[in-house]
Design a protein around this nucleic acid. Structure first.
Length: 376
RNA sequence: GGGGAGAUUCCAGAGCGGUCAAACGGGGUAGACUGUAAAUCUAUUGGCUAAGCCUUCGGAGGUUCGAAUCCUCCUCUCCCCA
């Protein structure tokens, strides 16, 4: 994998670049749709590629390991072939499940033991075996196993947690170097900065992570309950330290406004379930603002979903129709809303990239944040 | 024509003398959702001059300190047998 930094904004820390992987190029800043269980929920691969313009998607190690299982993925020849996606894939290590399935796991020095949310069976993830699993999945970018502590963790816990993540990282990197890809294309390994809401810890973690000289670096443990201001502050501290010539990935972020602010802080890659999950729950992100399509006010609004929207659904279907579908829990509603939201996200980062290259990012960003945050 | 069951707040359906503005669902309305245990979850759902008051349980009377709950008559629905 290669990263070319093309432009750096003068007023902010925003950057435009290219990531070149064996599955093609990614133009940064980029948003990566989340496809946890071998599918970006409610969206076809063809729509993802042709309509939405996704350049890379996510998968999740924990979920894929439980179902369909590594054996099936290996028989399929890897996740790309299994799902019919020939562009890059990034897999999360299962670190987030340490956080989201907190009540069903045990943390130890060796690794983390989960109780499957499907059948209750016990499984242990270690820094080493998640590398193996991600080798079998065949993701282009694989993530280190980390502990993602809650946003309101106290200093002592945050420090302990960060140190564990660092020890795990060392083991993970070693194992990554001692193993190789299984399907012919190369894989990159991203370490993850932790440190919760403490600047000192974040700094320390970023320095530690940078020391490994991996092909990209991630910022984790944010957007987990802390105020947005804290998230920006932490991101700001970290991007000052992480190498300029490697892509930075802010994990799990966020709202359109979060993404624009973080681009300004020097982040290149994002992922978030928000556009897809919220779509299924009736929330639409548009360039005019946020729409709760379930609200009565849209009942007889037969105007297009988003006249400025980049995807075919935006002009093809009306708000009233989409409202009907979502309220009736019709599957098509989830499909339309998901395509719309993802299309909007991808379009947003594409425009941000243009503005960075044109040198007009700062002004555009501030204006855009006000618009996209408004509630319609 | 004979016999039986029932009418409850938007729907459906509990309640069978006070703790009932009335359970549980559904529907309605609003909110949440950030490396997906989520096509999920939460709140609210008679009115008001709102820790109180007013009007509601088919209709009209009655019994009782007190009735959605008991009695009488009326209206209407449904089921079974002819």
């Amino acid at each position: 994998m290669e990263f070319n930094l093309l432009h750096s904004d003068k007023e902010t820390k925003a950057r435009a670049g290219n990531i070149i992987s064996d599955h093609g190029e990614i133009e940064t800043p980029i948003f990566m749709p989340v496809g946890t269980a071998a599918t970006v929920k409610a969206v076809h691969q063809r729509e993802l590629k042709d309509d939405i313009g996704a350049q890379i998607i996510l998968g999740n190690t924990y979920h894929l390991y439980l179902r369909p299982g590594i054996n099936i993925l290996e028989q399929a020849g890897g996740l790309h072939k299994f799902i019919g996606w020939d562009k890059p894939i990034l897999t999360d290590s299962g670190g987030y499940q340490v956080f989201s399935l907190a009540e069903m796991r045990k943390l130890k020095e060796e690794g983390v033991t989960f109780q499957s949310h499907i059948d209750g069976s016990k499984h242990t993830f270690t820094p080493e075996n998640v590398v193996d699993t991600q080798r079998s999945i065949g993701a282009d970018i694989i993530m280190a196993l980390d502990e993602c502590p809650p946003g309101d963790s106290d200093f002592r816990y945050a420090q302990k947690s960060m140190e564990l993540t660092h020890r795990w990282l060392k083991r993970g990197v070693d194992h990554f170097h001692n193993t190789g890809p299984k399907y012919g294309h190369s894989q990159s390994f991203f370490p993850i900065v932790q440190g919760s809401s403490f600047k000192d810890l974040r700094k320390q973690s970023a320095e530690f992570i940078a020391g490994f000289g991996m092909e990209g670096n991630a910022i984790g443990g944010l957007s987990v309950g802390e105020p947005a201001e804290v998230m920006y502050e932490m991101t700001d501290v970290v991007t000052d330290i992480l190498p300029q010539d490697k892509p930075r990935y802010l994990m799990g972020v966020g709202t359109p406004a979060n993404i624009l602010e973080s681009i300004a802080l020097g982040v290149d890659m994002f992922d978030c379930v928000m556009p897809t999950r919220n779509a299924r729950n009736g929330m639409l992100f548009t360039s005019e603002g946020i729409i709760n399509i379930k609200n009565k006010k849209w009942e007889n609004d037969f105007s297009p979903i988003d006249t400025q929207g980049p995807t075919f659904v935006d002009s093809f279907y009306s708000k009233a129709y989409l409202r009907h579908l979502i309220i009736s829990k019709e599957i098509l509603g989830a499909q339309i809303a998901s395509i719309h939201n993802l299309g909007f996200y991808l379009c947003l980062v594409k425009e941000a990239r243009k503005q960075i290259i044109a040198g007009t990012f700062s002004k555009w960003k501030n204006n855009m944040i006000t618009k996209v945050s408004e509630r319609l």
